[in-house]
Design a protein around this nucleic acid. Structure first.
Length: 183
DNA sequence: CGGTGGATTCTCT
DNA sequence: GAGAATCCACCGA
């Protein structure tokens, strides 16, 4: 074994997306430790993927997608929420995996405070970023350097469902949304 | 340089 | 199930 999950993130984005399911994503932002197990992700490619932010080339917003794999791409959605992606593929080739949902695994009380509620803590991309304390200042940060960490699951997920991506208007038929099926 | 619309979430009906 | 909230990157002029 060489780099484990890091090698997978350097490969094709849809393969990387599947591999991220079941991973434990931990943040120690603001001195408060929170973690989730990723349960829902979506893959986004580059110029060949009309639904991707990188479809029209490099811009100030999507620059992180062109960087090396294993970093965060964080952007503001609908002027209100932050959404997190894991950059994949080789440097210079834009691709990223949107983290849509997870299961709270650590620091639940911190997440409750950040979210301002006790239910629906991490069941959407904006909610997940808020619960973990991730905002725009983390755009480009490495997942393998403190205060972030990404740990692969002990054993691979038993079953993964694939379907169309959510909330997009282009390329709606590409089945690049992956959901961890409980079992 | 101004108009536009989004990889969303919440509240209310 | 529908509509509002709210910002800024992007695109066309």
């Amino acid at each position: 074994m060489t780099g484990g999950i890091r090698d997978v993130l350097a490969g094709p984005v849809d393969v990387a997306a599947r591999a991220l399911l079941g991973c434990r994503f931990t943040t120690g932002i603001g001195g408060e430790r929170t973690a989730v197990v990723l349960t829902e992700v979506e893959a986004y490619g580059g110029a060949d993927d009309p639904a991707s932010h990188a479809h029209r080339g490099r811009t100030a917003r999507n620059a992180a997608m062109f960087g090396p794999p294993g970093r965060l791409y964080v952007y503001r959605s609908y002027g209100i929420h932050w959404c997190m992606n894991v950059v994949t593929g080789p440097e210079g080739a834009p691709a990223a995996v949107l983290l849509r949902a997870g299961s709270p695994a650590e620091g639940v009380e911190v997440m409750e405070r950040r979210r301002g509620r006790r239910d629906h803590l991490t069941d959407g991309p904006g909610k997940l970023a808020q619960a973990l304390g991730v905002g725009g200042e983390w755009d480009g940060a490495s997942l393998f350097e403190a205060p972030l960490s990404l740990e692969p699951p002990v054993s691979p997920p038993r079953s993964v469902d694939a379907g169309p991506r959510v909330g997009i208007t282009r390329e709606v038929d590409r089945p690049w949304r992956f959901v961890l099926r409980r079992g």
